[in-house]
């Protein structure tokens, strides 16, 4: 499974658990518009760390939290394997 599909699947799973109705997940959708609160993002990052072995937001001290779904996915894609 590609990194992108892992991320998208995790977002959908958490949305289901948190009873959040997601809009269509396009790359330029702002994370704010997903309907996720900070707890939902915290869960997402923790699960992806378990799944992919990386947490791109803790590794880099100065990494700004992404603004859009596309930025978020790329943060995982750009981590050196």
């Amino acid at each position: 499974m590609s990194v992108r599909s892992k991320v998208i699947e995790a977002i959908r799973q958490i949305a289901k658990e948190q009873k959040v109705t997601l809009p269509e997940l396009s790359d330029d959708l702002s994370l704010h518009e997903t309907g996720f609160d900070s707890l939902a993002f915290a869960i997402l990052v923790a699960r992806l760390e378990d799944d992919t072995g990386v947490d791109p937001f803790t590794i880099s001290e100065d990494a700004a939290f992404p603004a859009t779904v596309g930025d978020f996915v790329r943060a995982y894609e750009n981590v050196p394997a």
Binding site: L39, A42, I43, A46, T58, F65
Partner: peptide, 12 residues
């Protein structure tokens, strides 16, 4: 608890 870059901590 587990550290989270977003909320400081989460429950696992």
């Amino acid at each position: 608890s587990r550290k989270s870059p977003i909320t400081g901590g989460i429950v696992v």
